[in-house]
Simulated assay, not measured.
Amino acid sequence: MDLRPSELQDILRTSAADFFEREVSFERIREIEAANRPDEQLHGQMTELGWNSLAISEDYGGQGGSVLDAGVLITQICRAALPSPLASTLVGAVTIERHGDEELKSSLLPQLNSGLTISPALLEASDSLYGPVTAEYADGALTGEKRFVEFGETSDVHLVAAMQGDSPGLAVVRRDQPGVTARDTRTIGALPQATVHYDGASAEAWIEGEDAVETMRRLGSAVAAFETYCYAQKALDLTVDYVQMRVQFGQPIGAFQMVQMRSADMATVVEGSRFLVHELLWQIDEGLETRRQVALVKAITAKMTPLVLQDCHLLHGGIGYMQEYDLHFFTRRGRDAALRWGSARETMHIVTEEAFAAASA
Rank of each mutant, 00 (worst) to 15 (best):
V213L: 07
E214R: 15
M216T: 07
M216H: 04
M216L: 15
R217D: 00
R217I: 13
R218Q: 10
R218W: 11
R218P: 00
R218D: 01
L219T: 05
G220I: 03
G220A: 05
G220S: 07
S221L: 00
S221V: 03
S221I: 02
A222F: 13
V223R: 03
A224F: 05
A225S: 14
A225Q: 11
A225D: 09
F226Q: 05
F226C: 07
E227T: 09
E227R: 15
E227W: 06
T228S: 13
Y229D: 02
Y229N: 14
C230M: 13
Y231I: 01
A232N: 06
A232F: 00
A232T: 12
A232C: 02
A232K: 07
Q233T: 05
Q233M: 06
K234P: 05
K234F: 07
K234I: 13
A235P: 05
L236K: 01
D237N: 02
D237F: 01
L238E: 11
L238I: 05
T239Q: 03
V240W: 01
V240Y: 01
V240D: 11
D241W: 06
D241C: 08
Y242R: 13
Y242Q: 07
V243E: 00
V243G: 00
V243L: 02
M245R: 15
R246Y: 13
R246S: 05
R246A: 12
V247C: 05
V247F: 12
Q248L: 09
Q248D: 09
F249P: 00
F249A: 14
F249C: 04
F249I: 08
F249H: 10
P252C: 05
P252K: 12
P252H: 11
P252T: 12
I253P: 15
I253L: 10
I253C: 06
G254R: 15
G254C: 14
A255P: 01
A255V: 10
A255S: 07
F256P: 14
F256C: 04
Q257H: 10
Q257K: 12
Q257I: 14
M258T: 03
M258C: 05
Q260W: 01
M261A: 11
A264I: 04
A264N: 13
A264Y: 04
D265F: 06
D265Q: 12
M266T: 00
T268I: 08
G272R: 14
G272N: 15
S273N: 13
S273I: 11
R274M: 01
R274S: 01
R274E: 08
F275K: 04
F275A: 08
L276V: 01
L276P: 00
V277N: 11
V277T: 14
H278W: 10
H278R: 14
L280E: 03
L281R: 09
L281C: 10
L281I: 08
W282I: 08
W282E: 15
W282V: 06
Q283S: 15
I284F: 03
I284D: 02
D285F: 06
E286S: 04
G287A: 09
G287C: 10
L288C: 00
L288Y: 04
L288Q: 13
E289I: 02
T290Y: 06
T290G: 12
R291H: 08
R291N: 08
R291W: 03
R292I: 09
R292T: 12
R292Q: 13
Q293K: 04
V294S: 10
V294N: 11
V294M: 10
V294L: 12
A295P: 03
A295V: 11
A295C: 08
